[in-house]
Amino acid sequence: MEVTLKVKRYEFGNDLGSSEQSYTIEIDGQDTLLDALLQIRDEKDPTLGFRGSCRSGFCGDCTMTVHGKGAITCRTKVEEASKKSKDGVIPIAPMKLTKVVKDLIYDDEQFHWAKIKATEPWVDVASTVPDQDQKISNEQVKELRLAMSCTQCGLCDQGCVVLAIDKTYLGPGALTKAFRTVHDSRDTRYKERLDSLSGKRGMWDCAHCFEASEHCPKGIEPTDRIFDLHDKVIKEDLGVGGAKRHYKSFAASVKADGWLDEARLAIESEGLGNVKGILRLIPLAVKAALRGKRPMPYFLHKKRPGHKKIRSIFEKWEVKK
């Protein structure tokens, strides 16, 4: 089939900035977009810059933006991509949120690897005696296998709504990598890692909107991995700040009343000793009350009819954990 690829061009340091260039080629529709780019570079334009390595969806190197969305180009068929636009033209741009170096090549060190490295993604074992096995159970490996299948393609970070507005957030890619280490029983820094990941720009900045899971092409479900990290932090009673207070207050009110005491949640999320924080709530509370919104806290908050049953479920769970 004949197909046109409209490729974003960019030359680092070139004052002319970015532009687009269209290439029309003859190619089998079942070939991939990476095949098409390789063909263009071989036959039409040796100056076209892009990355690609394994051509099998294993290395995550050829991630680009296709039709405005992140895609692994060695896993995207030309015909399939062409059908997505009325004129059959396939727009290709570099990864979003990244600093572009040339054409479709972006600086993955700055945006991606720096965050991965920040999680210290290696297992720190108790003993370093040479030739001594560091064993892990098959059961545990089963749970880790999914996270270990991550190819670092970066699509979860591309979809993340928090990273889109705050590049300092660790992001779902790095947090998934962190899950892999935290979940490894051989590692000796379990609590230290969780504590660190609970800090600013860490796991609690996740909006748990499932964008990362929707964007992950390997089914790793990064959002669920972040939920796993939340659970571990709460179980170990680690971390500090509003997110932890928020969780504790949420759980306490559901346990006590069967449902959420919103006013209590607002107060306790600020911290009971935080006079400044609680005073800050007053203008909004007054405004809401004047409009007839009156969620009542603590003993004024009505309990659900089945609250004792909900409490009983909590108590059984607390014994189990």
């Binding site: 659970d231 709460i234 759980a251 559901v254 069967g258 449902w259 959420l260 909900i310 059984k316 769970w317």
Partner: peptide
């Protein structure tokens, strides 16, 4: 439905919200 609990709203651990929702 009055005699039911909060869903957990994506805040509570699934270990506790799943039994409450199953109820």
């Amino acid at each position: 439905m009055r005699d039911v609990g909060c869903t957990g709203a994506g805040v509570l651990s699934r270990e506790i919200s799943d039994p409450i929702n199953a109820r």
